[in-house]
Design a protein around this nucleic acid. Structure first.
Lengths: 206, 206
DNA sequence: GCAGTAACTTACTCGTAGTAGATTACGCGA
DNA sequence: TCGCGTAATCTACTACGAGTAAGTTACTGC
Protein backbone atom coordinates (compact mmCIF):
# COMPACT_ATOMS: atom_id res chain seq x y z
CA UNK A 1 0.00 0.00 0.00
CA UNK A 2 3.02 2.18 0.27
CA UNK A 3 2.85 3.64 -3.23
CA UNK A 4 -0.92 3.67 -3.64
CA UNK A 5 -1.42 6.19 -0.87
CA UNK A 6 1.63 8.38 -1.06
CA UNK A 7 1.62 9.22 -4.76
CA UNK A 8 -0.58 8.31 -7.66
CA UNK A 9 1.18 5.37 -9.24
CA UNK A 10 2.81 7.37 -12.01
CA UNK A 11 3.97 4.79 -14.43
CA UNK A 12 7.58 5.78 -14.96
CA UNK A 13 8.70 3.15 -17.34
CA UNK A 14 12.19 3.25 -18.59
CA UNK A 15 12.43 3.66 -22.30
CA UNK A 16 14.99 3.14 -24.99
CA UNK A 17 16.64 6.20 -26.40
CA UNK A 18 14.66 6.25 -29.60
CA UNK A 19 11.38 5.63 -27.84
CA UNK A 20 11.98 8.37 -25.29
CA UNK A 21 13.08 10.79 -27.95
CA UNK A 22 9.90 10.32 -29.92
CA UNK A 23 7.80 10.76 -26.83
CA UNK A 24 9.62 13.94 -25.86
CA UNK A 25 9.11 15.38 -29.30
CA UNK A 26 5.43 14.55 -29.19
CA UNK A 27 4.99 16.23 -25.84
CA UNK A 28 7.09 19.24 -26.76
CA UNK A 29 5.18 19.75 -29.95
CA UNK A 30 1.91 19.70 -28.04
CA UNK A 31 3.03 22.06 -25.34
CA UNK A 32 4.72 24.52 -27.67
CA UNK A 33 1.54 24.59 -29.68
CA UNK A 34 -0.63 25.11 -26.63
CA UNK A 35 1.39 27.75 -24.88
CA UNK A 36 3.73 29.18 -27.45
CA UNK A 37 7.48 28.88 -27.34
CA UNK A 38 8.37 31.46 -24.77
CA UNK A 39 5.63 30.66 -22.32
CA UNK A 40 6.64 27.03 -22.26
CA UNK A 41 9.13 25.97 -19.63
CA UNK A 42 11.43 23.02 -19.91
CA UNK A 43 10.24 21.93 -16.48
CA UNK A 44 6.72 21.60 -17.76
CA UNK A 45 7.70 19.55 -20.76
CA UNK A 46 9.83 17.36 -18.56
CA UNK A 47 7.01 16.83 -16.10
CA UNK A 48 4.54 15.94 -18.82
CA UNK A 49 7.03 13.44 -20.12
CA UNK A 50 7.26 11.90 -16.67
CA UNK A 51 10.95 12.62 -16.69
CA UNK A 52 13.32 15.14 -15.18
CA UNK A 53 14.73 18.18 -16.90
CA UNK A 54 18.30 17.05 -17.44
CA UNK A 55 16.93 14.31 -19.67
CA UNK A 56 15.69 16.91 -22.10
CA UNK A 57 19.09 18.50 -22.12
CA UNK A 58 20.74 15.13 -22.57
CA UNK A 59 18.66 14.61 -25.68
CA UNK A 60 18.37 18.04 -27.24
CA UNK A 61 21.01 20.23 -25.66
CA UNK A 62 18.88 23.31 -25.16
CA UNK A 63 15.39 24.68 -25.38
CA UNK A 64 16.15 25.99 -28.84
CA UNK A 65 17.48 22.61 -29.75
CA UNK A 66 14.25 20.99 -28.69
CA UNK A 67 12.16 23.40 -30.70
CA UNK A 68 14.45 22.87 -33.62
CA UNK A 69 14.07 19.12 -33.40
CA UNK A 70 10.29 19.48 -33.34
CA UNK A 71 10.35 21.67 -36.34
CA UNK A 72 12.68 19.47 -38.27
CA UNK A 73 10.43 16.52 -37.75
CA UNK A 74 7.32 18.37 -38.78
CA UNK A 75 9.00 19.94 -41.76
CA UNK A 76 10.32 16.62 -42.92
CA UNK A 77 6.84 15.20 -42.77
CA UNK A 78 5.46 18.19 -44.59
CA UNK A 79 8.08 17.86 -47.26
CA UNK A 80 7.32 14.21 -47.69
CA UNK A 81 3.58 14.73 -47.99
CA UNK A 82 4.04 17.53 -50.48
CA UNK A 83 6.46 15.57 -52.55
CA UNK A 84 4.25 12.51 -52.73
CA UNK A 85 1.25 14.60 -53.71
CA UNK A 86 3.13 16.15 -56.57
CA UNK A 87 4.38 12.87 -57.88
CA UNK A 88 1.02 11.73 -59.21
CA UNK A 89 0.24 14.71 -61.37
CA UNK A 90 0.32 15.26 -65.09
CA UNK A 91 0.50 18.86 -66.21
CA UNK A 92 2.86 21.34 -64.58
CA UNK A 93 -0.04 23.33 -63.30
CA UNK A 94 -1.54 20.25 -61.77
CA UNK A 95 1.75 19.48 -60.07
CA UNK A 96 1.69 22.86 -58.45
CA UNK A 97 -1.95 22.68 -57.44
CA UNK A 98 -1.56 19.29 -55.85
CA UNK A 99 1.55 20.35 -54.02
CA UNK A 100 -0.21 23.38 -52.64
CA UNK A 101 -3.23 21.38 -51.65
CA UNK A 102 -1.12 18.92 -49.75
CA UNK A 103 0.80 21.73 -48.11
CA UNK A 104 -2.22 23.60 -46.80
CA UNK A 105 -3.99 20.40 -45.93
CA UNK A 106 -1.09 19.23 -43.83
CA UNK A 107 -0.78 22.45 -41.89
CA UNK A 108 -4.52 22.49 -41.46
CA UNK A 109 -5.03 19.05 -40.11
CA UNK A 110 -1.77 18.25 -38.49
CA UNK A 111 -1.44 21.18 -36.19
CA UNK A 112 -3.15 24.30 -37.27
CA UNK A 113 -1.81 26.35 -34.43
CA UNK A 114 1.64 24.88 -34.67
CA UNK A 115 1.81 26.85 -37.85
CA UNK A 116 2.24 29.88 -35.67
CA UNK A 117 5.20 28.37 -33.97
CA UNK A 118 6.61 27.38 -37.29
CA UNK A 119 6.63 30.77 -38.78
CA UNK A 120 7.29 32.86 -35.74
CA UNK A 121 9.21 31.58 -32.88
CA UNK A 122 12.72 32.73 -33.40
CA UNK A 123 13.92 34.62 -30.46
CA UNK A 124 16.79 32.41 -30.98
CA UNK A 125 20.47 33.07 -31.39
CA UNK A 126 21.46 33.55 -35.02
CA UNK A 127 22.85 30.05 -35.13
CA UNK A 128 19.44 28.54 -34.50
CA UNK A 129 17.88 30.87 -36.99
CA UNK A 130 20.29 29.60 -39.58
CA UNK A 131 19.44 26.02 -38.89
CA UNK A 132 15.79 26.77 -39.38
CA UNK A 133 16.61 28.51 -42.60
CA UNK A 134 18.45 25.41 -43.66
CA UNK A 135 15.40 23.29 -43.02
CA UNK A 136 13.29 25.68 -44.97
CA UNK A 137 15.78 25.43 -47.75
CA UNK A 138 14.83 21.80 -48.22
CA UNK A 139 11.34 22.93 -49.00
CA UNK A 140 12.88 25.51 -51.26
CA UNK A 141 14.88 22.90 -53.05
CA UNK A 142 11.75 21.01 -53.89
CA UNK A 143 10.06 24.07 -55.34
CA UNK A 144 13.20 25.19 -57.10
CA UNK A 145 13.50 21.77 -58.66
CA UNK A 146 9.99 21.95 -59.98
CA UNK A 147 10.54 25.42 -61.34
CA UNK A 148 13.76 24.39 -62.99
CA UNK A 149 11.98 21.56 -64.77
CA UNK A 150 9.12 23.76 -65.89
CA UNK A 151 11.28 26.63 -66.96
CA UNK A 152 14.67 25.40 -68.04
CA UNK A 153 15.30 28.64 -69.85
CA UNK A 154 15.09 30.79 -66.75
CA UNK A 155 18.33 32.00 -65.17
CA UNK A 156 19.34 30.60 -61.83
CA UNK A 157 18.87 33.81 -59.89
CA UNK A 158 15.34 34.16 -61.18
CA UNK A 159 14.51 30.64 -60.13
CA UNK A 160 15.87 31.22 -56.66
CA UNK A 161 14.03 34.45 -56.28
CA UNK A 162 10.77 32.95 -57.40
CA UNK A 163 11.29 30.07 -55.04
CA UNK A 164 11.55 32.45 -52.13
CA UNK A 165 8.53 34.35 -53.34
CA UNK A 166 6.44 31.23 -53.50
CA UNK A 167 7.54 29.92 -50.13
CA UNK A 168 6.93 33.24 -48.45
CA UNK A 169 3.53 33.51 -50.05
CA UNK A 170 2.57 30.00 -48.96
CA UNK A 171 3.65 30.48 -45.39
CA UNK A 172 1.89 33.76 -45.07
CA UNK A 173 -1.27 32.45 -46.66
CA UNK A 174 -1.23 29.46 -44.34
CA UNK A 175 -0.89 31.75 -41.37
CA UNK A 176 -3.69 33.94 -42.60
CA UNK A 177 -5.97 30.96 -43.02
CA UNK A 178 -5.58 30.34 -39.30
CA UNK A 179 -8.00 33.16 -38.68
CA UNK A 180 -10.18 32.50 -41.72
CA UNK A 181 -12.01 29.21 -41.33
CA UNK A 182 -14.17 30.14 -44.30
CA UNK A 183 -11.23 29.75 -46.67
CA UNK A 184 -10.87 26.08 -47.45
CA UNK A 185 -7.71 24.19 -48.21
CA UNK A 186 -8.80 23.93 -51.82
CA UNK A 187 -9.43 27.66 -51.98
CA UNK A 188 -5.98 28.45 -50.71
CA UNK A 189 -4.38 26.03 -53.12
CA UNK A 190 -6.36 27.54 -55.95
CA UNK A 191 -5.38 31.09 -55.07
CA UNK A 192 -1.72 30.16 -54.94
CA UNK A 193 -1.78 28.17 -58.14
CA UNK A 194 -3.66 30.79 -60.09
CA UNK A 195 -1.41 33.50 -58.82
CA UNK A 196 1.71 31.58 -59.68
CA UNK A 197 0.40 30.97 -63.12
CA UNK A 198 -0.85 34.33 -64.21
CA UNK A 199 -0.36 36.73 -61.34
CA UNK A 200 -2.92 39.45 -61.09
CA UNK A 201 -3.52 39.80 -64.79
CA UNK A 202 -6.85 37.92 -64.84
CA UNK A 203 -8.26 40.50 -62.46
CA UNK A 204 -6.95 43.60 -64.12
CA UNK A 205 -9.43 45.49 -66.13
CA UNK A 206 -7.15 47.29 -68.52
CA UNK B 1 37.67 67.85 -9.51
CA UNK B 2 35.43 65.56 -7.60
CA UNK B 3 33.70 64.07 -10.66
CA UNK B 4 36.64 64.07 -13.02
CA UNK B 5 38.57 61.53 -10.98
CA UNK B 6 35.92 59.29 -9.48
CA UNK B 7 33.89 58.52 -12.58
CA UNK B 8 34.06 59.57 -16.17
CA UNK B 9 31.72 62.53 -16.36
CA UNK B 10 28.81 60.63 -17.84
CA UNK B 11 26.48 63.28 -19.05
CA UNK B 12 23.24 62.19 -17.47
CA UNK B 13 20.95 64.94 -18.54
CA UNK B 14 17.37 64.70 -17.58
CA UNK B 15 15.09 64.55 -20.52
CA UNK B 16 11.46 65.17 -21.22
CA UNK B 17 9.29 62.14 -21.68
CA UNK B 18 9.08 62.40 -25.44
CA UNK B 19 12.78 63.03 -25.81
CA UNK B 20 13.74 60.11 -23.60
CA UNK B 21 11.31 57.82 -25.35
CA UNK B 22 12.81 58.55 -28.72
CA UNK B 23 16.30 58.00 -27.42
CA UNK B 24 15.33 54.69 -25.86
CA UNK B 25 13.78 53.50 -29.09
CA UNK B 26 16.89 54.50 -31.02
CA UNK B 27 19.14 52.59 -28.66
CA UNK B 28 16.87 49.57 -28.46
CA UNK B 29 16.63 49.35 -32.21
CA UNK B 30 20.39 49.42 -32.49
CA UNK B 31 21.00 46.81 -29.83
CA UNK B 32 18.26 44.46 -30.98
CA UNK B 33 19.74 44.65 -34.44
CA UNK B 34 23.26 44.01 -33.21
CA UNK B 35 22.56 41.19 -30.82
CA UNK B 36 19.17 39.82 -31.73
CA UNK B 37 16.14 39.98 -29.51
CA UNK B 38 16.84 37.19 -27.11
CA UNK B 39 20.49 37.92 -26.56
CA UNK B 40 19.74 41.49 -25.67
CA UNK B 41 19.20 42.28 -22.02
CA UNK B 42 17.18 45.15 -20.71
CA UNK B 43 20.12 46.06 -18.51
CA UNK B 44 22.29 46.60 -21.53
CA UNK B 45 19.79 48.83 -23.26
CA UNK B 46 19.32 50.77 -20.06
CA UNK B 47 23.03 51.23 -19.63
CA UNK B 48 23.54 52.42 -23.17
CA UNK B 49 20.75 54.90 -22.64
CA UNK B 50 22.55 56.19 -19.56
CA UNK B 51 19.50 55.30 -17.53
CA UNK B 52 18.41 52.58 -15.16
CA UNK B 53 16.25 49.62 -15.98
CA UNK B 54 13.02 50.64 -14.27
CA UNK B 55 12.88 53.57 -16.65
CA UNK B 56 12.47 51.22 -19.58
CA UNK B 57 9.65 49.49 -17.79
CA UNK B 58 8.07 52.80 -16.93
CA UNK B 59 8.00 53.65 -20.61
CA UNK B 60 7.34 50.36 -22.33
CA UNK B 61 6.03 47.96 -19.72
CA UNK B 62 8.04 44.95 -20.78
CA UNK B 63 10.77 43.73 -23.07
CA UNK B 64 8.16 42.63 -25.58
CA UNK B 65 6.59 46.04 -25.29
CA UNK B 66 9.86 47.68 -26.12
CA UNK B 67 10.42 45.51 -29.15
CA UNK B 68 6.89 46.14 -30.22
CA UNK B 69 7.36 49.88 -29.95
CA UNK B 70 10.50 49.66 -32.07
CA UNK B 71 8.75 47.68 -34.68
CA UNK B 72 5.74 49.91 -34.78
CA UNK B 73 7.91 52.90 -35.38
CA UNK B 74 9.88 51.25 -38.14
CA UNK B 75 6.80 49.84 -39.79
CA UNK B 76 5.10 53.19 -39.72
CA UNK B 77 8.09 54.70 -41.44
CA UNK B 78 8.17 51.89 -43.97
CA UNK B 79 4.50 52.34 -44.68
CA UNK B 80 4.96 56.02 -45.15
CA UNK B 81 7.88 55.65 -47.53
CA UNK B 82 6.06 53.04 -49.57
CA UNK B 83 2.92 55.08 -49.77
CA UNK B 84 4.72 58.19 -50.91
CA UNK B 85 6.61 56.27 -53.55
CA UNK B 86 3.44 54.89 -55.00
CA UNK B 87 1.73 58.23 -55.12
CA UNK B 88 3.76 59.58 -57.99
CA UNK B 89 3.18 56.77 -60.47
CA UNK B 90 0.99 56.52 -63.54
CA UNK B 91 0.18 53.01 -64.66
CA UNK B 92 -0.90 50.32 -62.20
CA UNK B 93 2.17 48.34 -62.91
CA UNK B 94 4.33 51.33 -62.23
CA UNK B 95 2.57 51.89 -58.94
CA UNK B 96 3.45 48.40 -57.90
CA UNK B 97 7.04 48.61 -59.07
CA UNK B 98 7.68 51.86 -57.29
CA UNK B 99 6.10 50.56 -54.13
CA UNK B 100 8.27 47.49 -54.20
CA UNK B 101 11.37 49.49 -54.91
CA UNK B 102 10.72 51.76 -51.97
CA UNK B 103 10.00 48.76 -49.76
CA UNK B 104 13.19 46.88 -50.53
CA UNK B 105 15.19 50.07 -50.56
CA UNK B 106 13.99 50.99 -47.11
CA UNK B 107 14.76 47.64 -45.60
CA UNK B 108 18.10 47.67 -47.32
CA UNK B 109 19.34 51.05 -46.27
CA UNK B 110 17.59 51.64 -43.04
CA UNK B 111 18.59 48.54 -41.18
CA UNK B 112 19.34 45.54 -43.25
CA UNK B 113 19.79 43.27 -40.33
CA UNK B 114 16.83 44.68 -38.51
CA UNK B 115 14.84 42.94 -41.17
CA UNK B 116 15.66 39.75 -39.36
CA UNK B 117 14.22 41.06 -36.17
CA UNK B 118 11.18 42.23 -38.06
CA UNK B 119 10.32 38.91 -39.44
CA UNK B 120 11.44 36.67 -36.64
CA UNK B 121 11.36 37.74 -33.14
CA UNK B 122 8.12 36.46 -31.77
CA UNK B 123 8.83 34.37 -28.82
CA UNK B 124 6.19 36.52 -27.47
CA UNK B 125 2.92 35.78 -25.80
CA UNK B 126 0.05 35.52 -28.25
CA UNK B 127 -1.10 38.98 -27.31
CA UNK B 128 2.09 40.52 -28.59
CA UNK B 129 1.91 38.43 -31.71
CA UNK B 130 -1.52 39.82 -32.38
CA UNK B 131 -0.35 43.36 -32.03
CA UNK B 132 2.36 42.72 -34.55
CA UNK B 133 -0.18 41.22 -36.88
CA UNK B 134 -2.22 44.36 -36.47
CA UNK B 135 0.72 46.47 -37.54
CA UNK B 136 1.28 44.28 -40.51
CA UNK B 137 -2.35 44.67 -41.36
CA UNK B 138 -1.73 48.35 -42.01
CA UNK B 139 0.70 47.36 -44.70
CA UNK B 140 -1.92 44.94 -45.92
CA UNK B 141 -4.52 47.63 -46.09
CA UNK B 142 -2.33 49.64 -48.38
CA UNK B 143 -1.81 46.75 -50.76
CA UNK B 144 -5.42 45.68 -50.58
CA UNK B 145 -6.48 49.21 -51.43
CA UNK B 146 -4.28 49.23 -54.47
CA UNK B 147 -5.56 45.87 -55.59
CA UNK B 148 -9.15 46.92 -55.08
CA UNK B 149 -8.62 49.91 -57.32
CA UNK B 150 -6.91 47.88 -60.01
CA UNK B 151 -9.36 45.05 -59.94
CA UNK B 152 -12.74 46.28 -58.86
CA UNK B 153 -14.33 43.17 -60.25
CA UNK B 154 -12.47 40.80 -57.95
CA UNK B 155 -14.30 39.40 -54.94
CA UNK B 156 -13.25 40.52 -51.53
CA UNK B 157 -11.85 37.19 -50.40
CA UNK B 158 -9.64 37.02 -53.46
CA UNK B 159 -8.29 40.47 -52.77
CA UNK B 160 -7.51 39.60 -49.19
CA UNK B 161 -5.82 36.38 -50.15
CA UNK B 162 -3.70 38.05 -52.77
CA UNK B 163 -2.77 40.73 -50.32
CA UNK B 164 -1.41 38.13 -47.95
CA UNK B 165 0.37 36.40 -50.78
CA UNK B 166 2.10 39.58 -51.83
CA UNK B 167 3.08 40.61 -48.32
CA UNK B 168 4.46 37.19 -47.53
CA UNK B 169 6.38 37.11 -50.75
CA UNK B 170 7.87 40.54 -50.14
CA UNK B 171 8.96 39.78 -46.61
CA UNK B 172 10.52 36.53 -47.59
CA UNK B 173 12.28 38.02 -50.55
CA UNK B 174 13.61 40.84 -48.39
CA UNK B 175 14.93 38.32 -45.92
CA UNK B 176 16.52 36.29 -48.67
CA UNK B 177 18.24 39.34 -50.06
CA UNK B 178 20.01 39.69 -46.73
CA UNK B 179 22.31 36.89 -47.78
CA UNK B 180 22.43 37.82 -51.44
CA UNK B 181 24.24 41.10 -51.90
CA UNK B 182 24.34 40.46 -55.62
CA UNK B 183 20.61 40.96 -55.91
CA UNK B 184 19.95 44.68 -56.07
CA UNK B 185 16.94 46.54 -54.79
CA UNK B 186 15.84 47.09 -58.37
CA UNK B 187 16.19 43.39 -59.13
CA UNK B 188 14.02 42.43 -56.22
CA UNK B 189 11.39 44.98 -57.13
CA UNK B 190 11.43 43.74 -60.68
CA UNK B 191 11.03 40.11 -59.68
CA UNK B 192 8.10 40.92 -57.49
CA UNK B 193 6.41 43.15 -60.00
CA UNK B 194 6.80 40.72 -62.85
CA UNK B 195 5.58 37.87 -60.77
CA UNK B 196 2.56 39.79 -59.58
CA UNK B 197 1.75 40.68 -63.11
CA UNK B 198 2.10 37.45 -64.97
CA UNK B 199 3.20 34.81 -62.52
CA UNK B 200 5.43 32.15 -63.92
CA UNK B 201 3.88 32.10 -67.35
CA UNK B 202 6.66 34.05 -69.09
CA UNK B 203 9.09 31.33 -68.08
CA UNK B 204 7.02 28.34 -68.96
CA UNK B 205 7.91 26.69 -72.17
CA UNK B 206 4.59 25.10 -73.03
C1' DG C 1 23.25 -13.60 -8.92
C1' DC C 2 26.39 -10.06 -10.31
C1' DA C 3 28.91 -6.61 -13.06
C1' DG C 4 28.50 -2.86 -16.25
C1' DT C 5 26.22 0.44 -18.52
C1' DA C 6 22.54 3.38 -19.94
C1' DA C 7 18.52 5.74 -18.19
C1' DC C 8 17.44 8.69 -14.89
C1' DT C 9 17.43 12.00 -10.53
C1' DT C 10 18.31 15.52 -6.96
C1' DA C 11 19.89 19.69 -5.95
C1' DC C 12 22.05 23.11 -7.18
C1' DT C 13 24.07 28.03 -10.02
C1' DC C 14 23.43 31.95 -12.67
C1' DG C 15 21.39 35.32 -15.58
C1' DT C 16 17.77 38.26 -16.55
C1' DA C 17 12.86 39.98 -16.50
C1' DG C 18 10.30 42.60 -13.68
C1' DT C 19 9.07 45.60 -9.18
C1' DA C 20 8.66 48.40 -4.62
C1' DG C 21 9.87 52.35 -2.61
C1' DA C 22 13.13 55.89 -1.77
C1' DT C 23 15.50 60.03 -4.05
C1' DT C 24 16.98 63.70 -6.71
C1' DA C 25 16.82 67.39 -10.15
C1' DC C 26 14.27 70.69 -12.61
C1' DG C 27 10.51 74.44 -13.42
C1' DC C 28 8.04 77.97 -11.38
C1' DG C 29 5.85 81.20 -8.39
C1' DA C 30 6.83 84.40 -4.45
C1' DT D 1 17.09 83.78 -4.70
C1' DC D 2 14.67 80.55 -2.22
C1' DG D 3 11.74 77.00 -1.45
C1' DC D 4 8.18 73.56 -3.11
C1' DG D 5 5.76 70.33 -5.98
C1' DT D 6 6.15 66.98 -9.29
C1' DA D 7 8.11 64.22 -12.77
C1' DA D 8 12.25 61.77 -13.78
C1' DT D 9 15.20 58.73 -11.92
C1' DC D 10 17.83 55.32 -8.92
C1' DT D 11 19.07 51.43 -5.55
C1' DA D 12 18.11 47.21 -4.13
C1' DC D 13 15.58 43.78 -4.25
C1' DT D 14 12.39 39.08 -5.79
C1' DA D 15 11.05 35.40 -8.92
C1' DC D 16 11.56 32.27 -12.28
C1' DG D 17 13.46 29.59 -15.72
C1' DA D 18 17.57 27.84 -18.47
C1' DG D 19 21.22 25.04 -17.92
C1' DT D 20 24.64 21.73 -15.12
C1' DA D 21 27.49 18.57 -11.85
C1' DA D 22 27.54 14.61 -9.67
C1' DG D 23 25.29 10.93 -7.83
C1' DT D 24 21.56 6.82 -8.11
C1' DT D 25 18.67 3.20 -9.93
C1' DA D 26 17.09 -0.29 -12.99
C1' DC D 27 17.51 -3.26 -16.92
C1' DT D 28 20.90 -6.60 -19.90
C1' DG D 29 23.99 -10.05 -20.78
C1' DC D 30 27.01 -13.36 -18.73
Amino acid sequence: MSDATARPPVRRRRMSRAERERQMLDVAETVFTERGYKATSMDEIAERCGVSKPMLYEYFGSKDGLLLACMSRVKAELLDVTQKAMAGAGSPREVLRRGMHAYFGFIDSHSRSFAMVLSEPLAAPPETAETIEATRRQQSTLIAGVLAVFAPSAPRAAIDAHTEIIIGACERLALWRTGRPDVSVADAAQYMTDFCWHGLSPYLDD
